[in-house]
């Protein structure tokens, strides 16, 4: 776990440099917090138990909801926090509960274009701390909604269409659009949006061409943000499609080379706050540390295996080990050479 821990401390230092405060939460939270927003959670299975006073508690499956709960609405103010917490979720493949180490950051309150740009640039810097080769996919749900709403697709059709966006399934989308009798012009816009995947300087002009009255303000927003975070590692890609019941506006996902799944995911979640009857906006992201592979192990576990037997005076053992460690060596003291470790040399006392 050394690698994950190193990454956590690097990320924490980064978030603190932007003035974000550490948010520490307890392992358990009242089940009530989660049940109201169950579909906001990545998996709806939560480990629950009854507390000594009869309250139904949960092992935290998520941190964002707790942070939202603990923040207050004050005009002109934002709450900026970061966290490093273990969350408990059912893993998709094994169908068993797993402890997942997660780092993340939330900015809640009077969130505007500046805050959004700040969070995106911190997301980019987070990826840079994890690997040298990285990509942040940026999407705007407002643009997708503007393209999909008002073209006369059924509720079921819309849901399927959004799923096609997520999997870049152009063929599937074409079928749905034809089935739903969407006119050619609207259909072409959707297909074009789905196929975008590239650096902003290439995609933005193309996106401008598709613009209409509903889309224009969102494209303008995207353009402003990109002009500040401007980074060759950003891609405009509308396959990032978080649940629109909770997310709106900018959403993004980060990938690093040689890790098969996305390692960072986030976006604006104003609708969640609205549902919680809050008068605030929010943006944040999480880094999935368990997806990160540890770099190849260094040559040896220890430099010296120091062997002693029953007759060796204990003082001699201590002295010998101490002098080796003073010389900067990693020393393990054993009666016989342990199995399954890689060592430099064996020294017998």
């Amino acid at each position: 776990m050394v690698f994950a821990e190193e990454t956590v401390s690097k990320l924490s230092a980064l978030y603190e440099s932007y003035g974000y405060m550490r948010f520490k939460m307890s392992k358990f939270e009242e089940y009530d917090t989660y049940v109201k927003n169950k579909s906001f959670l990545t998996s709806d299975n939560v480990i629950t138990f009854t507390d000594t006073n009869g309250k139904l508690m949960a092992m935290k499956p998520d941190v964002t909801l707790s942070i939202v709960k603990s923040s207050k609405d004050e005009a002109g103010q934002t709450k900026k926090v970061y966290y490093n917490e273990n969350v408990y979720r059912v893993s998709g493949d094994s169908h068993a509960f797993k402890e997942i180490m997660q780092s993340g950051l939330e900015c809640i309150g009077d969130v505007g274009l500046y805050e959004i740009s700040e969070v995106i640039s911190i997301a980019l810097e987070s990826l840079k701390k994890i690997a040298s080769c990285y990509v942040l996919d940026l999407s705007h749900l407002g643009i997708i909604a503007a393209a999909v709403d008002g073209i006369g697709v059924s509720k079921d059709g819309r849901k399927k269409l959004l799923a096609c966006f997520g999997s870049k399934n152009v063929c599937g989308a074409e079928e749905i659009l034809a089935e739903e009798g969407v006119n050619e012009k609207d259909a072409a816009v959707i297909i074009k949006l789905m196929s975008f995947s590239g650096i902003p300087s290439v995609v933005l002009p193309e996106l401008q061409k598709l613009s209409n009255a509903e889309m224009a303000p969102y494209i303008q927003e995207l353009e402003t943000i990109l002009s500040v975070v401007g980074d060759e590692n950003v891609r405009i890609d509308f396959s990032v499609i978080n649940d629109m019941r909770y997310y709106n506006g900018i959403v993004f996902q980060g990938f690093v080379k040689d890790v098969p799944k996305c390692v960072l995911s986030g976006g604006q979640y104003d609708p969640l706050l609205k549902q919680m009857r809050r008068n605030a906006k929010a943006i944040g992201f999480a880094v999935y540390l368990d997806e990160l592979k540890e770099p190849a192990k260094r040559g040896t576990d220890v430099d010296v295996v120091l062997l002693f037997n029953e007759k060796t005076p204990i003082n001699n053992i201590f002295e010998a080990a101490k002098s080796l460690r003073a010389a900067g060596k990693k020393v393990i003291v054993e009666k016989s050479v342990p199995q399954n470790i890689i060592y430099g040399e064996v020294v017998k006392l």
Partner: peptide, 10 residues
């Protein structure tokens, strides 16, 4: 296609 591989071998 794998989502991550797609980013780096687009």
């Amino acid at each position: 296609a794998n989502k991550s591989a797609y980013k780096f071998n687009a």
